[in-house]
């Protein structure tokens, strides 16, 4: 019996970096992208921060850490949003600039492109989260890092979730083109109500709780609230979120690559 050959595609870090660089070059020249990355997170934090502070002033005891919990949730949601948004909008950037055919006429492989989109999301997430953390500290003298070193795995878990939502949206865009581009902005929010971002899962109706338990994001937000409000760190939530997040991310990337192949049947030109 001859030994089985396992096909492992050769991945070029040079080509991945080339795609990352294409978006890095664009960043300082795009007012839209600067606004998305800096202006909106700050506006969210200002509005929600003062609202929750006012709510806190109306009560006592049980609402002690509500402001910090809501603002941390807000910054955490930026991680999901940023990772999701970067994947789908960077795909749209290629369609808007009629560059998709040009790019895939090079040796670039779809999987390298996927890895590049994830890298860009990772880099920009740092900027958005940094801005968010800084704004919370400056405006409310609150330190989101009070959650401690567990901030790191939480952020990583949320990034996996953001990427999976992003590739889900990008898959649809790859099939439908720019006429369904609104998916890039709306897909993330479809998951927000079920992810228990600002409220505990128990306030949701039963059917919605079932959906929520199937999402990796829910465990991060629930875990974060438990750590901040009760001082209890829930390890099992981290594991559940990690397992679900990785499964969904792998499935979403496979779906995206399948949609790229499907789109190739009609040709990338028609998407531009």
């Amino acid at each position: 019996m001859s030994p089985k050959t396992i096909y492992v595609p050769k991945i070029s870090s040079t080509r991945i970096w080339a795609v990352v660089l294409r978006h890095v070059y664009l960043f300082p020249k795009s007012f839209d992208r600067l606004t998305d990355m800096i202006y909106w997170p700050i506006m969210d934090i200002v509005l929600w921060g003062f609202t929750t502070r006012w709510v806190q002033q109306q009560g006592s005891g049980t609402v002690q850490n509500v402001v910090l919990a809501i603002l941390t949730a807000m910054v955490f949601w930026q991680v999901v949003w940023r990772a999701n948004y970067e994947v789908s909008v960077n795909l749209l950037e290629e369609l808007w600039s009629a560059n998709l055919v040009n790019m895939f006429a090079t040796p670039l492989k779809p999987i390298e492109w996927v890895l590049a989109l994830m890298t860009i999301g990772f880099l920009k997430m740092f900027v958005s989260v940094g801005v968010g953390v800084g704004a919370v500290w400056l405006l409310y003298s609150l330190n989101i890092f009070s959650i401690g070193w567990m901030m790191i795995p939480y952020v990583a878990l949320l990034m996996f979730s953001g990427w999976f939502i992003g590739f889900l949206g990008a898959s649809l865009i790859m099939l439908g083109g720019t006429r369904i581009q609104t998916i890039a902005w709306t897909m993330g929010f479809l998951f927000a109500p079920f992810s228990a971002v600002y409220y505990p899962i128990t306030v949701l109706p039963n059917w919605a709780q079932t959906v929520a338990r199937a999402l990796p994001t829910t465990y991060v937000f629930e875990g974060m609230r438990s750590a901040l409000l009760n001082g209890v760190f829930l390890w099992e939530y981290v594991v559940k979120s990690l397992v679900l997040g990785l499964i969904y991310l792998v499935l979403a990337i496979c779906l995206f690559l399948w949609c790229c192949e499907k789109s190739r049947e009609k040709g990338y030109v028609r998407l531009q």
Binding site: R15, V19, R22, S97, N102, T106
Partner: peptide, 19 residues
């Protein structure tokens, strides 16, 4: 077929050279 129009000529060619 076009290039990303907000990138400069040099930036575009740099990206494609790397690809």
């Amino acid at each position: 077929i076009k290039f990303p129009d907000r990138l400069t000529i040099r930036e575009n060619l740099d990206v494609y050279g790397r690809l």
